[in-house]
Amino acid sequence: MANLGGKEVEVNEGGYVMHPEDWDKAVAGDLAKELGINLTDAHWKVVDYLREQHGQGIEMSIRKLGKSGIVDIKTLYELFPGGPLKYAAKIAGLHRPTSCV
C-alpha cells in the first residue's frame, strides 16, 4: 500500500497502481512527484492519450507515441527523463511495458 492523492492505494513492488479504479488526478500527481516530475499540460496530454489508448485495448510503444501527433520522441524524453514509456504509464495508472518473461 502507498499513500497517494490523500488515500491508501494498493501498488505492486514497482510502485504501479494495482486497481485502475483507485487512479485519479491526485494519485497521478503524487506518482509523478515520486519520479521528480511536476505535471504540466504537456505531461497531461501524454498521460490522457495513454489512458485513452489503453481503454481501447491498444498496447503503446515509444514509436507509436512519437507518431501519434501528441508528442515527438525528443520532447517525450524531456517530459519523462530516463524511461518515458514506463514513467508515463506509471503516472497514468497503467501497467509497465513488459515482455513474456
Binding site: P97, T98, S99
Partner: peptide, 16 residues
Amino acid sequence: TPLDGAFTKPKASKSL
C-alpha cells in the same frame, strides 16, 4: 533492451 530489464516478470526475474 528498451525494456527495464532482461526479465520483466517478477517470477521469471526471480528464477532466472
